[in-house]
């Protein structure tokens, strides 16, 4: 966990600095009329300075005060997990595109079928039936029963 803490803290420091010096000055007006007590920028600045400070503290502490001889074999996110994360991100983004440009009746069966397959099911009939029936049932429940339109 030590190495993961160092990397995550360093990324948080970088993120904090980016937000403090780029995002907030550009995307939050500083002297809008009508602010009383606190400017609109104050809360974002205050919170992000605290985050950056805490992340810096974590980084320094892990780097210089908690040296450990233990190996980092049990990394919190091993290589296989990064592979899974990349794969699942692609699946989720593909689902988003399908939902946005075609609809839930395309995106739904796609994501259900892919996830069932990823979880180890290999019977085509079981995958096919579940990935068609479940999205249809959910679509009918939301759109026909509750009258909430879905994409």
């Amino acid at each position: 966990m030590r190495r993961a803490d160092i990397i995550s803290a360093a990324l948080l420091v970088a993120f904090g600095l980016l937000v403090i010096f780029v995002v907030i000055p550009v995307w939050v007006p500083g002297h809008a009329e009508g602010n009383y007590g606190l400017l609109a920028q104050d809360a974002p600045y205050l919170t992000m300075i605290v985050v950056t400070g805490l992340a810096l503290f974590l980084l320094v502490r892990r780097l210089f005060f908690e040296r450990s001889d233990e190996s980092d074999e049990d990394a919190p996110i091993p290589k296989q997990s990064w592979g899974f994360l990349a794969l699942i991100s692609v699946v989720l983004i593909a689902t988003l595109f399908l939902m946005e440009f075609v609809g839930v009746l395309a995106g739904g069966p796609f994501i259900v079928a892919v996830l069932i397959y990823l979880m180890g099911e290999r019977r085509p009939l079981a995958i096919g039936v579940t990935s068609v029936v479940a999205p249809l049932a959910i679509w009918a429940f939301f759109w026909k029963l509750l009258e909430f339109p879905l994409p």
């Binding site: 803490d5 907030i24 995307w27 007006p29 009329e33 009508g34 602010n35 606190l38 919170t47």
Partner: peptide, 26 residues
């Protein structure tokens, strides 16, 4: 790390219109 997570949550809650002057933030 608990404190970092909490303050990040506070930071994220500032996105949107400022409640006082309706200034858009991030």
């Amino acid at each position: 790390k608990g404190l970092i997570a909490a303050v990040l949550g506070l930071f994220l809650s500032t996105v949107g219109l400022d409640s006082e002057a309706s200034t858009p933030r991030m």
